[in-house]
């Protein structure tokens, strides 16, 4: 006889929880309203890197360094681009129920309109793009996808034999700086703020490094110790920068700012006037969790609640031989969506 169902839940196998997670993943509320459900299927990474840069990056007018790098190091540009995309997605998830939620910000390599203004939101996008590009390149280097990652000093096999190659994440940071820093003699205040925030993003990578050490030697004693550093996950870096964004500072000529702080030039525009919130998911609730604040997000336009009944697999059990048998469970969810009609003028 089986004990209480609660006991059985904790004995679920890893495989069954795989299926549970897949079921939950397919029923997850969309992060962007109207976006296609599910994840876009990507071809394997080797093929992406071999194809070279897509045309929008190859002919990028805003960042000439990207054009040049696409011809010499396309794999690095692609890794940086994908890192930025992932960073923006993390930001959207993180700020999902805030008024400004990082969506429609646009990739920095496409020179989006937001980055031509000195808003507080621009500072976060600059820093996050810089950090994400560095993270993407560093991760691709650690995975061995990119062959032209550099060591800390220019070297060949002889230098590697002599002193090793402790590239760490430095190559990613260098690549991010070279790809995203605009060249030219324009010396406006906006350009200065941009450079500062890009640097703050690169410093965010360094501030969140995780240090580890290993003792080795005679009988495993600590006769010798070797230490290394690795990047935090992009989620942690995004959290770090979102905290900085919450405490960003208005920049004036006589401001004294730390290199790790985010700075901006103009007050943020009113999101309620800038773009339509019609159809936006403003809250989400199931039997145990509630998230979101519709009154604030919907700009007073009211919202409607949609009741959903989701069928999920639960209590999966492995049956000999090679069969996974699950029960079908019902889960209730309530999705709140903003009412309203789009205004006539759009700033973004």
């Amino acid at each position: 006889m089986r004990a209480a169902p609660f006991d059985f839940f904790f004995q679920s196998t890893a495989l069954s929880t795989f299926f549970i997670l897949c079921s939950l993943a397919t029923n997850e509320i969309p992060t962007i309203s109207g976006a296609p459900a599910g994840k876009i299927v990507q071809p394997p990474k080797p093929n992406i890197l071999k194809q070279g840069c897509p045309s929008d990056l190859l002919h990028s007018r805003a960042l000439r360094s990207i054009q040049l790098a696409c011809r010499t190091h396309p794999a690095t540009v692609i890794s940086a681009f994908e890192g930025v995309q992932e960073g923006l997605q993390n930001c959207a998830n993180r700020l999902r129920f805030q008024q400004w939620d990082c969506s429609e910000a646009g990739n920095i390599m496409h020179d989006p309109p937001l980055l031509r203004q000195g808003f507080r939101e621009s500072s976060l996008i600059w820093a996050l793009s810089s950090a994400s590009a560095a993270w993407g390149v560093a991760t691709a280097c650690a995975q061995g996808w990119i062959d032209d990652c550099a060591c800390n000093n220019q070297m060949g096999q002889n230098e590697y034999e002599f002193g090793g190659c402790t590239h760490g994440v430095q190559h990613g940071i260098t690549a991010s700086r070279k790809l995203l820093t605009k060249v030219g003699a324009v010396n406006t205040l906006l350009r200065k703020v941009e450079k500062h925030n890009l640097k703050a993003g690169r410093l965010a990578i360094k501030k969140t490094l995780i240090s580890s050490c290993k003792c080795h030697g005679v009988s495993g004693s600590c006769q010798q110790k070797t230490c290394w550093k690795r990047t935090a996950t992009l989620e942690h870096i995004t959290d770090y920068l979102v905290e900085k964004y919450a405490r960003a500072k208005l920049y004036t000529d006589d401001s004294v700012v730390k290199t790790t702080d985010l700075i901006y030039l103009e007050a943020s525009p009113d999101v309620c006037k800038a773009k339509s919130v019609a159809g936006r998911v403003c809250a989400w609730r199931n039997e145990t969790h509630t998230q979101g604040d519709c009154d604030r997000l919907c700009c007073g336009n009211g919202f409607s609640i949609r009741h959903e009944v989701v069928r999920v697999k639960c209590d999966c059990e492995f049956v000999w031989c090679c069969n996974l048998v699950c029960k079908d469970c019902i889960q209730h969810r309530w999705i709140s969506t903003c009412n309203g009609t789009p205004p006539k003028s759009l700033i973004f």
Partner: peptide
């Protein structure tokens, strides 16, 4: 987010080639 096709997950392989290629 991967859905395995085998019940013991032996189809999943973690790979490292040592050492890396650096600077081409």
């Amino acid at each position: 987010e991967y859905t395995p096709s085998s019940f013991d997950l032996r189809e999943i392989v973690f790979i490292a080639k040592m050492p890396h290629t650096r600077d081409g």
